[in-house]
């Protein structure tokens, strides 16, 4: 089952990357498929937790640099066909559901219209916005740093959720997963437009296999505050040339306030539970 989880993790990320690469009508469909594969991953993970199977979020590097969308689509089909052969390792209901999803997705992917891919050309131009070299560099570094960070947060909250039966705190984790997905998709789209798309690196297990949850929340709040500051700096840097882009970073900045409030809420709930 652990190998199946790794393969589904890789297929999910590959499909998400394909969604970033697409500029046309295929984008939303690929995002939807990647969301389905992420849900498969969480269901397999829950099975592993229930059965006491030791697992990690280790995975292989995922090469995604292509010039045509069809190449990555056929890569996804190959990945899904391999997953289909391994479904005997999960329970019948889940195996049936996954098999039916895979059958549908592998049937649809070959029918999607092909596209030329510009997500890896390193041109570092975002739409028609004229940015200074310094602002372009700052935006580049921000996108690499924060896209990884959002992926990391998705995986951390997902791992914590999989190991908790506390409905109150799991509601908060789910909100934070959903929020990080929105940020990851926003940043990934910008990276693809700038020709600097890269798959977030895999996560060191100590990051999500958390031993001190109190420390995790406190550090997390601190990191959210730093992210707000990065958004503020970027907003200032791009405001002159693109008020629209500045507004976007202000919008992301303001969203972080609620994340901080949720993490404080989760921390208070956790501390209350441990003190009772």
């Amino acid at each position: 089952m652990t190998n199946l989880a790794i393969k589904v993790h890789e297929a999910w990320l590959t499909t998400l990357m394909a969604g970033f690469m697409s500029n046309g009508v295929n984008k939303q469909r690929l995002f939807d498929f990647s969301d389905i594969l992420f849900r498969h991953f969480t269901w397999i993970e829950r099975e592993m937790v229930k059965d006491g199977v030791a697992y990690s979020y280790d995975r292989d590097a995922i090469p995604v640099k292509v010039e045509k969308l069809s190449v990555i689509l056929y890569n996804i089909i190959e990945r899904l066909n391999q997953i289909d052969l391994q479904l005997t390792s999960v329970n019948d209901d889940l195996a049936y559901r996954m098999a039916q999803d895979i059958k549908y997705i592998t049937g649809v992917l070959p029918t999607l219209e092909d596209e030329d891919i510009r997500a890896f050309n390193s041109e570092r131009r975002l739409d028609d916005i004229e940015l200074s070299q310094e602002a372009t560099d700052a935006l580049t570094l921000f996108l690499f740093e924060e896209s990884y960070k959002e992926y990391e947060l998705i995986m951390i909250y997902n791992y914590l959720k999989a190991h908790s039966d506390d409905a109150y705190i799991n509601r908060i984790f789910q909100i934070l997963v959903d929020e990080s997905f929105f940020h990851l998709k926003s940043f990934g789209d910008m990276m693809a437009k700038m020709g600097i798309l890269g798959v977030p690196r895999s996560i060191y297990k100590e990051i999500y296999q958390i031993e001190d949850i109190r420390e995790f929340f406190l550090t997390g709040i601190d990191e959210e505050l730093k992210a707000k500051e990065e958004c503020r700096k970027l907003s200032e840097a791009v405001a002159k040339n693109s008020p629209e882009l500045a507004k976007f970073f202000d919008f992301i900045n303001s969203q972080e306030n609620y994340h901080i409030a949720l993490m404080r809420d989760a921390l208070a709930h956790w501390e209350k539970g441990t003190n009772e």
Binding site: D58, R59, D60, A61, K65, F120, S122, R124, T136, D137, T140, L141, F144, I196, L197, G198, R201, S202
Partner: peptide, 17 residues
């Protein structure tokens, strides 16, 4: 300083994992 070599290492870190 962000140059082509740096971007390549950020997009595709070598030997990671």
């Amino acid at each position: 300083t962000v140059d082509a070599q740096l971007i390549e290492h950020m997009m595709n870190p070598k030997n990671y994992g």
